[in-house]
Design a protein around this nucleic acid. Structure first.
Lengths: 244, 244
DNA sequence: CGATTTATTGAAGAAACTCAACTCGAGTGG
DNA sequence: CCACTCGAGTTGAGTTTCTTCAATAAATCG
């Protein structure tokens, strides 16, 4: 029974844990919190003394620019730790929002540091998780910087599906994706109107369905081709079949 | 005399090192290499067994998309470790190129791991460095996703100046920036032609000079305003006056 | 010096944006 | 129960930003 601590399920997915390690992980206190959709969780400039593992819902990391528009830089789902980096960066550099109702399992930085010290293998895996976040950021720079709208959205949908599948949330090409078109526009840097039209194009080509909080991919190969998608930047521990 | 090992100068900037730590750092073997401009250093898909500290020159991290165009996701200067993440991510997820002639100080992953294990405080600081990279990636997503050309380039120039100043490379508003307009276009996701025209606009407004491998900022406040620049995402250990 | 990048310019076209109106569905409250 | 509101999605039309293509000037390098 490994699921009695949020970090256990996360870390056990990546490696076989020793008895000692399991005990140490269980010693990390967890404080759960519920957040309603569209609530801010942490604000740019905050100095959090704990990080949270997302055990239900979807959050995003975003910034507001001079004109008042907002860019979403990262999306986080079940099992992610959206603010792991605050463990070593004192000041939070972006806002973190709940896109849906969420459950957050907070863990004090002090205990996470202690865990890292006592069990370097676990520390390395937490470090690794932040590096994967960085890799995803890089791919988002590419996506927003180089791909035009249809390709850009296709790529995003591919990523969502693979990550959802890996988190155990997807089945038969369908996964939860409870975001609005306005959210999509802030993830892609496109205007809401253009997102709408691009969605229609993707639907019209029979590639996807999107709505009612769900994403369904009908033609994986087609979407991968359109989105120029390769999953290596996700650094998956093992291959994932997103359509299974 | 701390400058006899590349990691020493890097880490000593962030914290006061103990005798033990200094000895441990000195024990990390360094192998230096020279790379000519426009040479690839590491390729997407590589499995490096060492990382390098950049002790001279400029490198960038980039990817090529389906159409053959290239996006630069990160720029690295003196003191940076562009591939630190390969310490825990087996496969390199992007290409790393030398923009200018460079000197690379390679350090085996095995020794870096040993250092992390024996001196967690140093390990944390290396981790921290990768987190700052991640923060910069996030800001680049914002930059490319939301800001229009003049603002986008202004922001980039502000970042370059602050980072250069912090690395001890800038003085009186001037720093080395030996990149072509084509490089700028790949950093910003703009076409080379548009970069050229935007540069002319910035020059015309008396904000900057750029060319001959150097960047000069004439009106810091103006550039900051235009670029919507705030330096908090760089997580500077201490305030930096980029124009001093 | 010629050769080859790099920078610059003009002009036409495409992708994406803004603005504004309209539809639809899910509440909410009278 | 129905009218109303409010958020989300959709559509049309005109505009802007940026791109592409192609040609020329300037700078750099061997």
């Amino acid at each position: 029974m490994l699921a009695d601590h949020p970090l256990l399920s996360k870390l056990a997915r990546a490696m076989v844990l020793s008895e000692d390690e399991i005990i140490a992980i269980r010693a990390v206190p967890v404080q759960s919190a519920q957040v309603k959709a569209d609530q801010i969780i942490s604000r740019e400039g905050d100095k959090p003394s704990r990080s949270f593992l997302l055990s239900e819902g979807v959050t995003c990391t975003s910034k507001v620019v001079a004109g008042g528009k907002r860019q979403i830089m990262a999306l986080h789902i079940l099992g992610d730790v959206p603010d792991m980096h605050t463990l070593h960066l004192k000041l939070l550099d972006s806002d973190i929002w709940a896109i849906t109702d969420c459950q957050l399992d907070y863990m004090p930085h002090a205990d996470l540091r202690r865990l890292n010290l006592a069990h370097p293998r676990l520390g390395e895996d937490l470090w690794r998780a932040t590096l994967v976040d960085g890799s995803i950021h890089r791919e988002w720079v590419v996506n927003v910087g180089q791909r035009e709208a249809p390709s850009r959205m296709a790529h995003l949908f591919c990523e969502i599906m693979v990550r959802s599948k890996q988190a155990g949330l997807a089945q038969d090409g369908t996964c939860p994706f409870p975001v609005t078109q306005a959210d999509l526009s802030e993830m892609t840097g496109l205007s809401p109107v253009h997102v709408n039209r691009t969605l229609q194009a993707l639907r019209g080509q029979g590639l996807i369905s999107f709505g009612q909080g769900r994403l369904t991919i009908h033609d994986w190969d087609g979407l991968v081709e359109l989105g120029d998608f390769r999953d290596d930047y996700l650094h998956l521990p093992e291959p994932v079949d997103p359509m299974a």
